[in-house]
Amino acid sequence: MSTGHNPLTSTPITTDILRGALELERTAHGVLPQRLPAWARAQNTDPQLAMAEAQPSGVRLAFRTRATVVELDALPTKRVYVGAPPRPDGVYDLLIDGHPAGRAVVTGGNTLTIDMAAGTAEQTPGPPGTVRFGDLPEGVKDIEIWLPHNEATELVALRTDAPVEPIRDRGRPVWLHHGSSISHGSDAASPTTTWPALAAGLGGVELINLGFGGSALLDPFTARTMRDTPADLLSVKIGINLVNTDLMRLRAFTPAVHGFLDTIREGHPTTPLLVVSPILCPIHENTPGPSAPDFSGTAEGRLKFLASGDPAERAAGKLTLNVIRDELARIVEQRSARDPNLHHLDGRELYGEADYARLPLPDELHPDAATHRLMGERFAERAFTPNCLAVPAP
């Protein structure tokens, strides 16, 4: 019998029906999924990381129901960059039994106005909005609503026209990944089409995405978070943020990588762990950071980045992508003698020179939607194999 005309009832939004977040923070409006625990957030003083980790990349509501109507009230925080083209609204992806079944946006919400040149940010409050998915197939089904990967999203209320229950363990391995804005999903078309989400779908794994825009900086609290988070497969993608923030020199980089891996291994001594070096980024292959925004094309709706360092400074220990790739390969080779479950992947296998010629980075830093798909497919092919992050047979 159809449930389409039943009244909508509310279901509390709890960790039982939320995946990909490490904590739910109670707010004045509802709950805010957080991808770092409170103790780790308390150790952070960087507003960029605070903003990035609260954007729910990889976070999704997941439940089983007979409902044919689902409504979600949410309060997004939308970003506006002074002098840059307008950003599209964050996307909510609906999956039914693992298959794409709808896409929507929430209007309204808070507005965070960021002036990159002045280094300032100002937030203006706004009202919540509603995502509605109707005319869903009848019968019992698994529903996932993937939250916008690039928009902080407070969850206010979930309503359905039939009862909701958590999806019990599907027996899939948990893949815990850490990386930069590329792993976070910058410029992907939607939350299920970031390269980690695509790779997870192809690999049949449950994703926990600790990709933080501008903030893959070997922070010890991130390593401890990974140490303490149950997972069957682990990966860390290291490099671009250390160059484009010009945060450290080679002398600090090498022991920091060792320390990061040591900390992860304290909680996951034998779990398959993959170290991924940077994808191709021509502006920083041999030129150190920091990166700087190039506003010269904003009148035409284009924002690009350029490298403001001097290649001659490599001799003083400044980092470039090629320096980092060589050092990561050396570190993994050294450590793998006593850690056979540690593996290395050159990021240029995911996106290299031939790919740049065909699919250039639109802003010289971030891949576009087509490149996210390419990277997800290639990561799944290379990583989820018996020789690397082996996924157990079902």
Rank of each mutant, 00 (worst) to 15 (best):
S235E: 03
G213C: 12
A292D: 12
P230M: 04
P269C: 11
G259E: 13
G289K: 02
F305E: 06
L234D: 05
G239C: 12
A223M: 10
A292T: 13
A307Y: 02
R224N: 12
A307K: 01
H284C: 10
F253M: 10
M248C: 14
R224T: 15
P290A: 08
G259F: 10
V275W: 01
D228Y: 09
P269A: 06
S291V: 02
A231V: 05
C281W: 06
I279Y: 01
V243T: 14
L306T: 11
L210F: 10
T229C: 07
C281K: 09
V276Y: 02
A231G: 12
E285V: 10
H258M: 15
V257Y: 00
V276S: 03
L233E: 07
D219R: 15
E300R: 14
P293R: 02
G289V: 04
A299G: 14
N244F: 13
I264V: 13
S215C: 13
T298G: 03
A252W: 03
F221N: 10
F212Y: 06
K304C: 08
L210T: 05
I279D: 02
P220E: 03
R249N: 12
A252V: 08
S277K: 06
S235V: 02
F221V: 15
C281D: 05
G211N: 01
D232L: 05
L273D: 05
L210Y: 03
S296R: 11
T222Y: 01
K237V: 11
D228L: 08
E285P: 03
R224G: 02
A299T: 11
R302Y: 09
S235N: 02
P282M: 02
L306Y: 10
S235R: 04
D246F: 06
H258I: 11
P230I: 11
L217H: 08
A216F: 06
G213S: 14
E300S: 14
K237W: 14
S291A: 14
S291W: 05
R265Y: 04
R224Q: 14
R227L: 06
P293K: 00
T222W: 01
E285W: 05
P255D: 06
